[in-house]
């Protein structure tokens, strides 16, 4: 069947283009007046629930991250505070952007032989793929600091040293809790199941 046969020919009134313009204007005006009403209510302090906008006022209010979002790297520590990294070079090898630079050093203990003397990540080259985190056998590198503002004024400042990476802490409060996310996805599944059953009933 020809695709065009599905559509009825437009009537004269429809072809004047005016009814569609009016429909569009009604939609935008409805949004305008509704949002203006809620802005005004929020401004005078009556209604704080409905903000009238979906905007997050970013530097003051942060949008919660997805739990799997990859943010700035950090190096984890053992209980004694020494880096968990054993300088096995797995991350350096797997890194597709070649942005990790490790210099290994000898440790006196028998069970852990090596430690990183240098562990540099060049953020100017990093593509935030997260392969280093996946490759690490010691859970020594993670990307859960919640830092996404990594701009700097020079390329030199983009290089993270071992000391800086070790000093970073995980920021769980920036992330959506995993159980909240599961709840949300469960309700979404329920909703879609409901709509399917209702569609089947019709």
């Amino acid at each position: 069947m020809n695709v065009h046969d599905k559509y009825k020919p437009l009537t004269f009134w429809e072809r004047t283009y005016l009814p569609r313009i009016w429909d569009g204007l009604v939609i935008t005006m409805r949004h305008f007046f509704r949002n203006l009403w809620h802005f005004t209510l929020a401004r005078v302090g009556v209604d704080r629930e409905w903000k009238g906008a979906v905007t997050f006022q970013y530097p003051e209010v942060r949008r919660p991250f997805h739990p799997r979002l990859r943010t700035l790297h950090r190096l984890t520590r053992r209980e004694d505070g020494s880096p968990r990294c054993v300088a096995c070079m797995m991350c350096e090898t797997v890194c597709p952007a070649k942005c990790i630079y490790i210099v290994a050093g000898q440790r006196p203990e028998k069970e852990i032989e090596k430690y990183p003397v240098r562990f540099d990540i060049d953020l100017g080259m990093c593509i935030f793929c997260g392969y280093c985190v996946e490759a690490c056998p010691e859970d020594a590198i993670r990307m859960d600091t919640g830092i996404i503002e990594i701009a700097s004024y020079s390329r030199k400042d983009m290089i993270l040293t071992k000391e800086r990476l070790l000093s970073l802490e995980p920021r769980t409060e920036y992330y959506t809790a995993r159980k909240d996310l599961e709840l949300a996805s469960k309700s979404r599944i329920l909703m879609s199941a409901e709509s399917e059953t209702s569609a089947a009933a019709h």
Binding site: T28, H31, F32, N35, A53, V54, T55, Q57
Partner: peptide, 10 residues
């Protein structure tokens, strides 16, 4: 401002 209010923005 008006375009923002129309589009659910600030």
């Amino acid at each position: 401002k008006q375009s923002a209010v129309m589009q659910d923005r600030i």
